[in-house]
Amino acid sequence: MIRRSLNFVIRGLILQNRIVKLLKKDFYIEFRSRASINISLAFAGITTLSVSLTSATMNLPFRVHSILIWVIIFFSAMNSLSHIFIREEEEGTSIFLSIHSEAEEIYIAKLLFNFILFIVITVVVTPLYLFFMQIWPENFIFFASSVFCGSTALSSITTTLGAIVAKTSMRSSLFTVISFPLTIPVLWISINLTASSLEGGSVDLLNLLFLLAFSGVIVSFSYLLFKFIWMEQ
């Protein structure tokens, strides 16, 4: 038992080294081509602007604000989230990737990448939205943590689904179909949380924890199952 856990730790350290390498590689490629993140940010900016242009003078209820924020975040992130795996398949680099790394390392590196990407998008979208719509949450920490926890849960589930989609023949059109039913509970709860934080409700720790627990469960199962998606076993 002790030997086993020791083995696990040693493997973890080796993993870490490779993961940093994989992450570095993904960021280099992303910043040199800048295709997906630029499109995502442009999409986010344009939708936020157009929403505020048409409705800034109206007095929207907070629930509608929260729905709009999440819709903008979700759809701007959608493209780039599945892109991270689709790119490997389309450019034919998945063999090069898998001949030099463990499936688990690939999963964790991609998960971290997606997570960082998601956070970048939310960090851009949310202040922009708040600024243009002239609203300010009563309890800012609650608001920020609701957005953060929602992003964590969404990025953890979409990473796995992105890997699945990359292996199919239809790719991005399929991504919407298969991710919708599984992201609904997360979006649902995130929208509720954000709405209640805008309305100035009390901190809903239970639901915040629910989102984190959800991402924990999904990440641990995906970690175990990822090799079945990535390669034939």
Binding site: K25, Y28, I29, R32, S33, E91, G92, T93, I95, F96, S98, I99, H100, S101, E102
Partner: peptide, 23 residues
């Protein structure tokens, strides 16, 4: 971890276009 023991080259294996030779 079979890949630790293997070196592999094939025309089906594309390299990362956006990385330099050294990278």
């Amino acid at each position: 971890s079979l890949w630790r023991h293997i070196g592999f080259a094939s025309p089906a294996m594309n390299l990362y276009e956006r990385l330099t030779v050294y990278e």
